[in-house]
Design a protein around this nucleic acid. Sequence first.
DNA 1: TCGGCGTATCGTAATATTGCAATGTAGCAA
DNA 2: TTGCTACATTGCAATATTACGATACGCCGA
Lengths: 106, 106
Amino acid sequence: MGTSHTESFTPEHLALAELFKALGHPARLAIVNAIAAQQACVCGEFVAITGLSQATVSQHLKELKSAGIIHGSIQGPKTCYCLSPSALGLLKDSVAQLQTPSDSCC
Amino acid sequence: MGTSHTESFTPEHLALAELFKALGHPARLAIVNAIAAQQACVCGEFVAITGLSQATVSQHLKELKSAGIIHGSIQGPKTCYCLSPSALGLLKDSVAQLQTPSDSCC
DNA sequence: TCGGCGTATCGTAATATTGCAATGTAGCAA
DNA sequence: TTGCTACATTGCAATATTACGATACGCCGA
């Protein structure tokens, strides 16, 4: 992708963009929604929900984890994933900030 | 990217993922924040803010527009961009839905 | 200890994204 | 008309993402 240009932006924008990018894929959105709705918790269930292969789901889980949106705890042979309230709080705040305070110039 | 697999997901997840993906880049986040803060409105100002070339900024604006997050109105020689409240509302609702209703299984 | 189950990781192929220079298009002033 | 300003599009090249099969790893039960 050309040159990554990451040095031109504020750390806040970079961190926040990571969060948004992690949610910017329907499979990951489905995973996160399933966790939020308490419909699923472990990798095998996400495979059934998304219809993707286990390897792909595991990769998506890894991305969500590295973005800080979820964190997994190994419970015996399974790994249980749950949401990170702090990341969701950040997202919520930033979206709230975007709400147009008044009507803009156009 | 492998095969796109878009048929496996719900339309809501697909549409929402488009919104999140559009915000999942620091340059686009900076643009949207600048509009929200009423610091900038036209392409030339975004070029100054992001430090990217005019062509690249125009491309990012196009993506934000096609995602429905902003819409531009041509005003003489300039094009003024502003946020779409409906898209922001969608984002806000979906983020609110993700907030953990209670503590989960792990 | 040996399988088997559930996940994670590796390697690889197909495709998407990012960025910029060059060029095109549209409005306005002289 | 001519030239200028502001923006959009096109055409690459470099890089990132997505997906999957194959395989490795870790934890149990027999």
